[in-house]
Amino acid sequence: MECFINNQLDKALEPALEKALRNLLQEAARQEGVPEGAEVSVTLVDDAEIRRLNRMYRGVDAPTDVLSFPLQDEEEVEPPIKGEEGELLLGDILISLETAARQAAAYGHSLEREVGFLALHGFLHLLGYDHDTPEREEIMFRRQEEILGKVGLVRG
């Protein structure tokens, strides 16, 4: 799976963080049976930008940690959106690096683990997972921990 990382912050992204994000999402794609030619985009933004997007798309005037925008809709009657032959455009994941840093400090784990968790959370939403009921939340969160464990991004 192709993973595009877009850094919209004023400072450069640590190469190790970018590499960890790519590895995690590629492993998640393998675990979930996502076709080889699939594409996902991860954009790192600040709190002001994610607040603007959260207000625009969800009607919530506050920063959040992650937003995802799927290009596929499992309920669509139309064929899935595709790029060139063999490519599947999954969607976009936006992460506030400022919020991720605060959450990592609060939870006592690395920024790499927190950003990985948020990226994976957004990625699973792109694949149709949700946490809108207790049953679906249990399935999604268990899957997140399984995949994070496979790449060594465990809590603590």
Rank of each mutant, 00 (worst) to 15 (best):
residue 103 Q to L: 15
residue 110 S to F: 12
residue 55 R to F: 13
residue 116 G to P: 02
residue 94 L to H: 02
residue 67 L to H: 02
residue 119 A to L: 03
residue 63 P to D: 04
residue 63 P to I: 01
residue 59 G to H: 07
residue 118 L to A: 09
residue 54 N to H: 10
residue 81 I to L: 14
residue 108 G to E: 06
residue 106 A to T: 02
residue 110 S to P: 03
residue 48 A to G: 09
residue 71 L to C: 08
residue 55 R to N: 10
residue 91 G to W: 05
residue 67 L to E: 02
residue 93 I to D: 00
residue 72 Q to Y: 10
residue 56 M to P: 01
residue 65 D to L: 13
residue 83 G to Y: 12
residue 74 E to L: 15
residue 97 L to M: 11
residue 91 G to T: 00
residue 121 H to W: 08
residue 119 A to T: 08
residue 52 R to W: 05
residue 102 R to Y: 01
residue 100 A to M: 08
residue 50 I to Y: 01
residue 87 E to S: 15
residue 114 E to I: 06
residue 105 A to S: 13
residue 108 G to L: 06
residue 73 D to P: 03
residue 83 G to N: 11
residue 65 D to S: 14
residue 120 L to M: 09
residue 116 G to W: 04
residue 84 E to T: 12
residue 56 M to G: 01
residue 99 T to S: 10
residue 48 A to P: 04
residue 77 V to N: 13
residue 90 L to R: 03
residue 113 R to E: 12
residue 72 Q to C: 04
residue 85 E to P: 05
residue 81 I to D: 05
residue 87 E to T: 15
residue 88 L to W: 10
residue 102 R to L: 13
residue 97 L to W: 11
residue 61 D to W: 07
residue 60 V to M: 08
residue 92 D to C: 04
residue 115 V to C: 06
residue 113 R to N: 09
residue 84 E to S: 12
residue 67 L to R: 02
residue 57 Y to I: 06
residue 116 G to E: 07
residue 96 S to W: 09
residue 109 H to K: 07
residue 93 I to A: 00
residue 64 T to V: 15
residue 117 F to L: 13
residue 69 F to R: 00
residue 118 L to Q: 11
residue 53 L to S: 00
residue 107 Y to C: 04
residue 93 I to N: 00
residue 80 P to V: 15
residue 89 L to N: 14
residue 66 V to S: 00
residue 64 T to K: 00
residue 102 R to H: 10
residue 59 G to E: 11
residue 55 R to V: 07
residue 60 V to D: 10
residue 106 A to S: 14
residue 69 F to T: 01
residue 98 E to D: 15
residue 68 S to D: 03
residue 100 A to S: 12
residue 108 G to W: 05
residue 97 L to I: 07
residue 114 E to R: 14
residue 90 L to E: 04
residue 77 V to C: 11
residue 88 L to I: 04
